[in-house]
């Protein structure tokens, strides 16, 4: 692969260990291109989630997880930033939709502002809510029920609400950990289309164990195996002509 110019994110020699000796991610180095979708693939347990969660420092919530190496966002080491600021710039969408159960749809979109103690005028709030719900193609479905709780929506709608909630803070990067694995095929298709549209605004890194999904939507693909980044390339190259034997056998369904 040609080297990526002006990467928005640089992962440099990152290793992550659970406890003292269980290394789940081993010396991963990769640059991520701006306004693209990068898929992270690999058999289950290979360290995809572990790597992704290091990028917005979710590991700091748990003792005994050690991250070494550097992660640079626009050249700035994220591991040295204040975590609250860093996480505002790098959003995350989880496997199971998790709108805040006590907040209505309106407040769920604004949750990032509420939790950061940022005061907004009514007009600003309305504007943010409408823009972001339109962005995830949810506005028409919920515009008459903004005061209902988010948990009343269908799974696919909830996940789109969660994406809107992350986008509302206008992050540079959106991390997604198997965001469609809990959804039905139609809701999945909807979200895939959505992501392709969204990459004009935000750089997306998506963990998926669904190869055809990665093939459909991603510009770049990483293949991980046993904690190592085995191959990283243009998706078009990776899916037609993988270089590593392990990648090839994974993509042809002979592994995991």
């Amino acid at each position: 692969m040609e080297s990526i110019k002006d990467p928005i994110l640089q992962i440099k020699d990152v290793s992550i260990a659970y406890g003292n000796n269980k290394r789940a991610v081993k010396n991963v180095t990769a640059d991520v291109a701006k306004n693209t979708i990068t898929a992270i693939m690999g058999p289950s347990g290979c360290g995809k989630s572990t790597l992704l969660r290091a990028i917005n420092r979710m590991h700091e919530l748990y003792k005994a997880i050690h991250v070494t190496g550097e992660i640079l966002l626009n050249g700035e080491n994220v591991l040295l930033m204040p975590p609250t600021e860093e996480r505002r710039r790098i959003g995350m969408v989880f496997q199971r939709p998790n709108p805040f159960p006590t907040m209505n749809i309106y407040d769920n979109v604004l949750a990032g502002y509420i939790l950061n103690g940022i005061k907004l005028s009514r007009a600003e709030k309305d504007e943010i809510v409408e823009r972001n719900l339109r962005n995830v193609m949810l506005w028409d479905e919920v515009k008459d029920s903004l005061t209902k709780r988010g948990t009343f929506l269908s799974g696919g709608q909830q996940q789109r609400l969660c994406i809107a909630r992350s986008l509302a803070l206008q992050p540079d990067i959106l991390l997604m950990d198997e965001p469609t694995s809990a959804l039905d095929p139609i809701a999945t298709k909807y979200i895939e289309d959505l992501l392709v549209q969204l990459k004009n605004e935000v750089t997306i890194m998506i963990v998926t164990h669904n190869m055809s999904q990665a093939k459909r939507i991603s510009d770049y693909s990483m293949f991980m195996y046993l904690g190592e980044l085995i191959e990283y390339d243009d998706s078009s190259v990776m899916f037609t002509n993988p270089k590593d034997e392990r990648t090839r056998s994974y993509l042809t369904g002979k592994m995991g």
Binding site: R88, R96, L115
Partner: peptide
């Protein structure tokens, strides 16, 4: 994940 979702939005621990 509820706590993680709150923190992932940049909320401080006690606010979340």
């Amino acid at each position: 994940t509820l706590k993680e979702a709150g923190l992932a939005l940049g909320g401080s621990y006690w606010r979340v």
